[in-house]
């Protein structure tokens, strides 16, 4: 007993002060990409060719990067002879629509807005989620799970992962939705009482990730269900996931701090 109390004293209070303060991330963390199209040479398609998931295409204003396809590897950064693409330390990546994930040069990312009206009233202070891994590599699952530890303490925001879809307000899906999980995903969704929401976490759940060409998967959660929130990354940092969840329930301002 004394040992436990002593350890308790030594280990201290360690819940992160987020969202009052934003925790420091590694200098090498790869967050929101920044494209400086003015540096691009005419006719250069090095980044488009280098991207292994076809996340980059040349638009009218220069390279456009689809955060939903991006697996956050440095292929485009290394391929660009002009240094026009860089990953910044900005962890705020979640959006409400698939289209908003396409990052055009010079344009700001349209970050997720809060649920509106009745849904905001119902879920804004209490959101129960059933997590379904549908072909994930356990990377997104790990960083979804970690939000439940005392370091992040998801419960203090009124968000909780629940064991039964019957107790849930929505699904949080990871993985590209394999053919072998399609039925289970549909049945789990059907078992959630309405109104309900769906959150897609990670490149796989958004567009198939590194497996987007494989027949064994369906290309993400949107292929079977309507998705209300997209959280990109491979896998997304826990901070990115939490930022998305808090935006959805209207608890964050634009710069990522709490609405007092």
């Amino acid at each position: 007993m004394m040992h436990i109390l002593l350890s308790r004293w030594r280990q201290g209070h360690r819940t992160l002060p987020y969202p009052k303060e934003i925790p420091a991330l590694s200098e090498r963390f790869q967050g929101l990409p920044n494209i400086q199209a003015e540096r691009c040479k005419a006719g250069c398609e090095a980044c488009v060719e280098a991207c292994p998931t076809e996340a980059i295409r040349l638009g009218a204003g220069g390279p456009e990067l689809d955060l939903g396809r991006c697996v956050f590897c440095p292929a485009c950064v290394e391929a660009c002879p002009e240094g026009a693409i860089a990953f910044t330390g900005d962890h705020r990546l979640a959006t409400r629509t698939r289209e908003d994930l396409i990052l055009a040069p010079g344009a700001d990312l349209r970050r997720a807005e809060a649920l509106g009206g009745e849904l905001k009233r119902l879920l804004g202070r209490s959101l129960k989620l059933r997590v379904v891994s549908a072909g994930g590599c356990n990377g997104c699952e790990v960083d979804v799970n970690v939000l439940g530890t005392l370091a992040w303490d998801l419960g203090r925001f009124g968000i909780q992962y629940v064991a039964s879809p019957r107790h849930a307000d929505g699904l949080l899906i990871t993985g590209p939705v394999t053919r072998n999980m399609e039925l289970a995903v549909r049945k789990t969704y059907d078992a959630v009482p309405g109104p309900k929401i769906v959150i897609a976490v990670g490149a796989c759940a958004i567009q198939g990730g590194p497996y987007y060409k494989r027949d064994e998967q369906l290309g993400g959660a949107s292929s079977v269900l309507p998705v209300d929130l997209f959280i990109p990354g491979c896998p997304p940092h826990p901070l990115t996931i939490l930022d998305g969840l808090l935006r959805l329930i209207g608890r964050l301002e634009d710069e990522g701090r709490r609405i007092s």
């Binding site: 072909g135 993985g175 590209p176 394999t178 494989r214």
Partner: peptide, 11 residues
Amino acid sequence: LGYQHRGVEQA
């Protein structure tokens, strides 16, 4: 098992 099968080896 098999629910997570996404075709890694063939890829």
